[in-house]
Amino acid sequence: MKHREIERLIQKTLDGEICPRDKGRLDKHLAACRECAEFFGEMVDSTAALRKLTEFYPQPGFNDRVISRLGLRRRFAWAKAGIALAGGWLAAAIFAAYSPLPAELLGKIATSFPALVRFYDNAAIVVSSLTSLLTPVVKNSIDATGPVIGAVFSVLFIYILGKTLQKEAKCRT
């Protein structure tokens, strides 16, 4: 067999497309021809080495650059804004509980809007009914319930606001 024909069979072997008959012919020739066997070995070695080539990687921070460009990081900015707003809400709740100023403001608003007074009166009935049902321990610490309720609502507010803003950020991206 000519070397040209052998090289064709070697290429077929490397392509993974050699048929059993051609493989038999190739093996027979390689066993008899040292030069072709050496050539075959070198071809196999060089192509096999390609699979083990070093894998290169981009600089650290590559993922962050891609994510930032895609705008997915906006979600974090929104979440931070949510936390800041919730913090403000909590501070306002504490301020409302301990400062006389909000009460004065509320009084002024109430006198301007009679409907608010009616609502306040109805709410007061509900609150006093609930208060009478509470345990003596809670009753005794009734002064502390304002800030506690404020804190609970603040946590709920943080959670709901965070979720809403997360959804908003997802929709934007």
Partner: peptide, 12 residues
């Protein structure tokens, strides 16, 4: 492939 083998090893 042939060229690669020639560049890596001895040319046939």
């Amino acid at each position: 492939r042939r060229k690669l083998r020639d560049l890596v090893g001895k040319p046939k």
